[in-house]
Amino acid sequence: MTSQKIKKLGIVVLLFLLLFFYKCPFQTITGIPCPGCNMTTSLYYLLHTDMERSLYYHALLIPTMLIFLACVYFRKNEKIIKILLIIWCILMIAYYIYRMIMYFPNSPMVYDRNSLIYFIFRHI
């Protein structure tokens, strides 16, 4: 197998693992959802053409995909990429704060009682 084929196979395996077996490390440790939590669920519903549920789980999935595509398109212009990423970060933080105020600890921003911190405090 050539080096290029091994890299492509590695990317496919990594994407498969991320899509089907990924567990958010931030939520696994703290129990609190991270800014990107539920984005995979949102992608699942988007791929199944259920736009309402997709937006319910994470409304910034589509803007995130568009910004990613724009970064790929403008990959040679670092200034545009930097501006796009700053805009994306501001949107993600603002949306995260909104979701934590409005939804936490209810769906879709649930507290994970199987987290490491919850386990430690439960046994102290």
Rank of each mutant, 00 (worst) to 15 (best):
R113E: 15
F21C: 13
M51F: 15
Y57R: 00
F68E: 02
S3P: 05
F74E: 00
Y45A: 07
F121R: 09
I29V: 15
I83Q: 06
V110G: 10
I80A: 09
H123G: 06
T2R: 06
D50L: 02
K8L: 15
L47Y: 07
P63W: 03
I124D: 04
F26S: 13
M51L: 14
T28R: 08
H123N: 13
K5C: 14
E52R: 12
I83N: 03
K79Q: 12
K82M: 14
P105A: 13
Y103V: 05
I120M: 14
C89M: 11
M51K: 12
D112F: 04
L18N: 09
L60E: 00
L14Q: 05
F20H: 11
C37A: 02
I97R: 05
F119H: 12
S3F: 06
V110Y: 11
I117P: 02
I97Q: 07
L14M: 11
L47T: 12
T28G: 13
I81L: 06
I90F: 10
A70E: 02
C24H: 05
K79E: 14
L19H: 04
I83D: 03
I62M: 04
Y95N: 10
R99M: 13
L47V: 08
L18Q: 04
K7C: 13
C24G: 05
I11P: 01
Q27R: 11
N114K: 08
L66E: 09
I67N: 00
I93A: 11
